[in-house]
């Protein structure tokens, strides 16, 4: 794909997908499971961003919060209220896990918007772990909490009896598609936005259309800021919805 673009582009060279390459950070070409790569770097930066945002800002424990502490409290309150509203009171004890997901995705998305950075959440390997992690955790939790009656989730008792087997099949399919859509939605959004940014930046190499291309980059960048926050929100609220299904499987 990238090769085709710069094969046919003549003077232009497009490398919209190069930014997603996983490369060892300290030389060498081999990527073993333990190799310190650009993935490692940007994941570590995400951790630092979260520590800076949630730990350092609250170190004063001020009753009247400053700017940083207000942001940390806002994040806390936002996710806490989301968990409480969507999953109910008994979902509160899973709040730290959901907060972890939200903060990681949010920080990784925003760090990915820094020029020359690497977007960890644009990789399907990362989002699939998140998505399937949520799926497996929620399914196990559903069976542990409700036993076999968790299967009632697939048996729509409010529908007419002849329809129920058909609905059950649809429900089961949709249930198993959840982790796939959950992870591909996030990775796809991040990847597409960043690739489009790179393509626009590539057009800026031609002097005649450079102003338009740069305005395009600015516009898409604004959109990507929105998408970064919204995707983190969507991922989190869907996690809450799945958690609610596990805790209260009956419609």
């Amino acid at each position: 794909m990238a090769d085709e673009a710069h094969g046919e582009g003549g003077g232009l060279s497009f490398h919209p997908m190069d930014q997603f390459e996983v490369k060892p950070l300290f030389g060498g070409y081999d990527v073993h499971w333990y190799t310190i790569t650009n993935v490692t770097l940007w994941l570590a930066l995400a951790i630092l961003a979260i520590i800076g945002l949630m730990v350092l800002t609250t170190s004063k424990r001020a009753t009247v919060p400053g700017r940083g502490q207000s942001i940390a409290e806002l994040m806390y309150g936002f996710v806490y209220k989301m968990v409480e509203d969507v999953t109910g009171k008994d979902g509160i004890k899973y709040f730290p896990y959901i907060m972890t997901l939200f903060m990681f995705i949010l920080c990784a998305n925003f760090l990915g918007l820094i020029p020359m950075s690497f977007t960890t959440t644009s990789h399907i390997a990362v989002t699939a772990i998140l998505g399937f992690g949520v799926f497996i955790a929620v399914t196990v939790l559903g069976f542990v909490k409700n036993g076999a009656s968790f299967l009632g989730l697939f048996w729509v008792s409010s529908a007419p009896l002849p329809l129920r087997p058909v609905l059950a099949i649809i429900e089961i399919i949709s249930y198993f598609v959840r982790p796939v859509s959950h992870s591909i939605r996030l990775a796809g959004n991040m990847m597409a936005g960043h690739a489009v940014l790179k393509v626009f930046a590539g057009f800026a190499q031609v002097a005649a259309i450079a102003p338009v291309a740069i305005i395009g980059v600015m516009a898409i960048y604004g959109l990507e800021v929105l998408v970064s926050a919204i995707q983190a929100y969507v991922f989190t609220i869907l996690t809450c919805v799945y958690l609610k299904d596990a805790l209260h499987p009956h419609h």
Partner: peptide, 19 residues
């Protein structure tokens, strides 16, 4: 394998920092 390994490390660290 590289991404998954480092992701899991990251998530565990973030979880402990937050919780």
């Amino acid at each position: 394998d590289n991404q998954i390994f480092w992701l899991l490390v990251t998530l565990v660290v973030i979880y402990f920092v937050l919780s």
